[in-house]
């Protein structure tokens, strides 16, 4: 079929094309990837703008019953949102601001958006990174134990538990943890994060435990199940069979032949889950009153604070795109086949 044509003549078993211009090929490839990421980000901005500014009437939503009576406030809001202008020019204004780092002014308290966001972004990053640090070794460990007992009792039990956890929404897990560990059964950890205006939520480490635990419980099952499946697939492969028939000790087979080839899908799923965490924090932060982007987003949506929501959703979507880009590049660097395909 189509592939037949791309094969070199098998009789000419010369060296495969080895690009002397490997560096240039890499640069070109990377530039293409970056370009695609920027394109995606731009389209995301279109979606965000249309969803917030064009689908409904934020001024009516903010004012509710006062819309008819409070004309002054209405006109002031409409002026701030530029309701009179055409949608295209409003979008271009907003995009221009984004590019130059001006996120606009909050409708709720008339403060610059960036000023309010910067600290919450840092808080969320800490929460996500802490969760990832706990999650990655945990998920890989469970996957390896499970793969070791493949299709026997311990494996089945682990898989069923993971599967059950994977289905439960993260905030439901969170509430169960709160009931268990802070209010109803034990009283070990605080149910909400308390932070002063100038301080950070991690000043009180105990308050971080439940949010981190909830996120870890939400993400670990996915990662672990996929890593296990990949490991099993690799362990069933012909090259692992040959390694065994060659007399390579099982531990070396596992470490050198199997894990090496299972790591790329692992990276992919971790990236996907890190990106998911960016959205998962919305509910978990709200539940634990953690001062991060998620809670801020929910509050802003409640207040119909359009500029805030626009900025926050751009940040969350941006994180997704960047994490995926990094994962793609890493996967390619770790897969010889893909790597050599680019440099030649």
């Amino acid at each position: 079929m189509t592939l037949e044509a791309t094969l070199p003549d098998p009789l000419a078993e010369g060296a495969p094309p080895r690009g002397r211009s490997g560096g240039a090929a890499w640069a070109l490839w990377l530039a293409r990837r970056l370009g695609l990421a920027v394109l995606t980000l731009w389209l995301v901005s279109v979606v965000v703008f249309l969803a917030t500014a064009a689908l409904g009437d934020p001024v009516r939503a903010i004012l509710g019953r006062d819309y008819e009576t409070n004309v002054a406030r209405r006109e002031q809001l409409e002026a701030q949102l530029g309701v009179g202008d055409s949608i295209v020019s409003r979008y271009l204004d907003w995009l221009g601001g984004l590019v130059t780092g001006d996120f606009g002014t909050s409708l709720a308290n008339q403060l610059p958006v960036w000023e309010q966001i910067s600290s919450t972004v840092a808080n969320t990053l800490v929460l996500v990174l802490l969760s990832a640090l706990v999650m990655i070794p945990l998920a890989f460990g469970i996957a390896m134990i499970s793969a070791h007992f493949r299709r026997r009792r311990p494996d089945t039990v682990i898989q069923t538990i993971l599967l059950a956890l994977a289905g439960v929404p993260e905030f439901v897990t969170g509430i169960l943890l709160v009931a268990l560990l802070s209010t109803s059964v034990f009283h070990v950890f605080p149910a909400v994060t308390i932070s002063t205006l100038d301080g950070h939520p991690w000043d009180e480490p105990k308050g971080m435990v439940l949010p981190v635990a909830t996120l870890v419980l939400a993400v670990t099952p996915y990662v672990s199940r996929i890593v296990r499946a990949t490991l099993l697939e690799v362990l069933d492969s012909d090259y692992v069979e040959l390694a065994r028939l060659k007399g390579i000790p099982e531990a070396v087979v596992m470490r050198k032949h199997a894990l090496l080839n299972a790591i790329v899908p692992g990276i992919q799923v971790i990236a996907l889950q890190l990106a998911w965490l960016a959205g998962g924090v919305v509910l978990v932060e709200t539940l634990f009153a953690y001062p991060g982007v998620g809670k801020q987003l929910v509050d802003s949506v409640r207040n119909h604070d359009v500029p805030m929501v626009q900025a926050l959703s751009m940040i969350i979507a941006g994180v997704y795109i960047v994490v995926n880009l990094v994962a793609d590049v890493l996967s390619i660097l770790l897969t010889p086949r893909a790597r050599t395909a680019i440099s030649s």
């Binding site: 995301v44 979606v47 409904g56 939503a61 509710g64 959205g279 919305v282 949506v301 929501v309």
Partner: peptide, 24 residues
Amino acid sequence: MRLNDVLLAFPQILLALVVLTALE
């Protein structure tokens, strides 16, 4: 699939929240 990737950049709950901003 490129256009699909754009929508995938929104976590599921975020897509709903963004639209709900402008609705009562």
